[in-house]
């Protein structure tokens, strides 16, 4: 089976920094930003983009629907 490569795009202004995506990421791709957004939240970002498989687990558990997921066969 071909290896999957993925990427996420976080709507950083909508992100509330709850970190539910982070613990549900199987590839430890997601980290929380040092900076804060307009609402004062540390938002999610890909700290290790190479590891993302585009499984979308982060996106489907995100209560605020801020994560868009892309995936390709590498």
């Amino acid at each position: 089976m071909a290896k999957m490569r993925g990427a996420i795009v976080v709507d950083t202004e909508r992100c509330k920094g709850c970190e539910v995506c982070l613990v549900n990421c199987p590839s430890d791709t997601i980290g929380m930003s040092k900076e804060v957004n307009g609402k004062g939240y540390h938002y999610a970002f890909m700290k290790d983009p190479e590891s993302c498989t585009g499984c979308a687990n982060c996106a489907i558990v995100c209560p605020d629907g801020v994560i868009t997921v892309y995936r390709v066969k590498a």
């Binding site: 993925g6 990427a7 890909m46 585009g54 629907g65 994560i67 868009t68 997921v69 892309y70 390709v72």
Partner: peptide, 20 residues
């Protein structure tokens, strides 16, 4: 592979529903 090559409309697997 560059991130930009992954983030393309044809590779989309999950996005926020427009009904929200």
């Amino acid at each position: 592979m560059d991130i930009k090559e992954i983030i393309k409309p044809e590779n989309l697997v999950h996005k926020r529903t427009p009904l929200m």
